[in-house]
Computed example of a mutant assay.
Amino acid sequence: MKTWWIAMACVVALAGCATKVPLNEVPVETAEPDPMTQQQDDGAAAVDTAQPAATDLSPATTETVVDGAPLTNIIYFDYDSTMIRPEFQSVVAGHAQKALGNSSLRLVLEGHADEMGSREYNLALGQRRAESVRNSLTILGVPSSQIEAISFGEEKPAVLGASDDAYAKNRRVEVRYP
């Protein structure tokens, strides 16, 4: 029985390994989100208590506009992951388009992590996240000379606290234009 658990742990660990597949060649599945509320006959919304509350990690808008749409400067990541989530691939593409439109523009990618894990691990994880975004930008044609990837690890949280929501908002890369 113990061997089975070890084998499963290895499979899960290997499944999380990043690949060097270009973003435009990765198949993306879209799933319909489960509704968090249901409409009752009297018009009041009833909260579905069977599911935990979802953290809003949708791309936040900023003042930068690309192709007439606001562009966020934050890319969120899953726990202990460096893979860019499908909903943020268009954000990366928007920053690539902006950088390609101005060869003198510099991008600084600031990698962050939540407070779980050691400081050293989180510093390395933040760097890998920033490098993941950097690699995606270079695949999309942005010269690496325009991009700097740095890590703050867990040192600059976006949200203080030890909740799942706070942790989720701290696992991010922020795109800065100095």
Score class of each variant (00 low, 15 high):
Ile75Ala: 07
Val173Gly: 06
Ser58Glu: 12
Gly111Arg: 04
Glu63Leu: 11
Asn170Met: 13
Gly16Ala: 02
Phe152Glu: 08
Gln38Arg: 02
Leu14Ile: 14
Ala13Cys: 08
Ser103Glu: 14
Val28Ala: 00
Leu109Ala: 09
Arg128His: 08
Phe152Arg: 10
Asn122Lys: 03
Pro22Thr: 02
Ala46Trp: 07
Cys10Pro: 00
Pro27Ala: 09
Leu71Arg: 07
Gly117Ala: 01
Val66Pro: 04
Tyr121Arg: 06
Lys20Met: 08
Tyr167Gly: 09
Tyr76Cys: 07
Ala130Phe: 06
Ile84Phe: 08
Ala31Lys: 13
Ile139Asp: 14
Asp165Asn: 10
Pro52Lys: 04
Gly141Val: 05
Val26Ile: 14
Ile150Pro: 08
Thr82Lys: 01
Thr62Ser: 15
Thr82Phe: 00
Lys2Val: 14
Leu160Cys: 06
Leu57Asp: 07
Tyr167Ile: 01
Ser136Thr: 15
Pro59Ile: 05
Glu29Lys: 12
Glu110Asn: 15
Thr30Phe: 12
Thr49Tyr: 04
Arg176Glu: 13
Lys98His: 15
Met116Glu: 14
Ala15Cys: 11
Glu155Gly: 06
Leu100Trp: 00
Arg172Asp: 12
Ala44Thr: 14
Asp164Trp: 05
Asn73Glu: 12
Ala46Glu: 08
Thr61Pro: 01
Asp41Met: 08
Ala168Tyr: 07
Arg85Cys: 01
Leu160Gly: 11
Ser81Phe: 08
Leu109Thr: 10
Arg129Trp: 02
Pro52Ser: 05
Met116Tyr: 11
Asp67Leu: 02
Gly153Arg: 01
Trp5Phe: 14
Pro52Arg: 04
Ile139Asn: 13
Thr19Glu: 06
Val26Pro: 00
Val12Phe: 02
Met8Lys: 10
Val28Lys: 00
Tyr76His: 15
Phe88Ser: 12
Glu87Val: 05
Ala7Ser: 10
Phe88Gly: 10
Leu57Ile: 14
Phe152Tyr: 14
Glu148Thr: 15
Glu29Val: 12
Ser58Gly: 14
Asp42Thr: 01
Leu71Phe: 09
Gly16Pro: 00
Asp67Tyr: 02
Lys20Asn: 11
Pro143Gly: 05
Arg171Leu: 14
Leu107Met: 12
Ala158Pro: 05
Arg119Thr: 01
Ala44Val: 10
Asp48Gln: 03
Asn122Pro: 02
Ile150Asn: 09
Glu115Ser: 10
Ala50Phe: 01
Ala13Val: 11
Asn73Pro: 01
Gly101Leu: 06
Ala7Trp: 07
Pro178Trp: 09
Asp164Tyr: 05
Leu71Tyr: 12
Thr3Val: 13
Ala158Glu: 15
Glu120Thr: 07
Val26Gly: 00
Pro178Asp: 09
Pro143Glu: 05
Ile74Gln: 13
Leu57Pro: 05
Ser81Lys: 11
Val65Leu: 03
Met1Ala: 13
Tyr167Phe: 08
Phe88Asn: 12
Ala93Met: 13
Asp41Cys: 00
Glu154Met: 04
Asn102Arg: 11
Val47Phe: 11
Ile150Phe: 07
Pro143Asn: 10
Pro70Gly: 07
Gln51Leu: 12
Gly111Asn: 06
Leu71Gln: 11
Thr37Ala: 00
Asp48Pro: 01
Thr37Pro: 00
Val142Arg: 03
Lys156Ile: 10
Ser118Phe: 01
Gln38Trp: 01
Arg171Met: 13
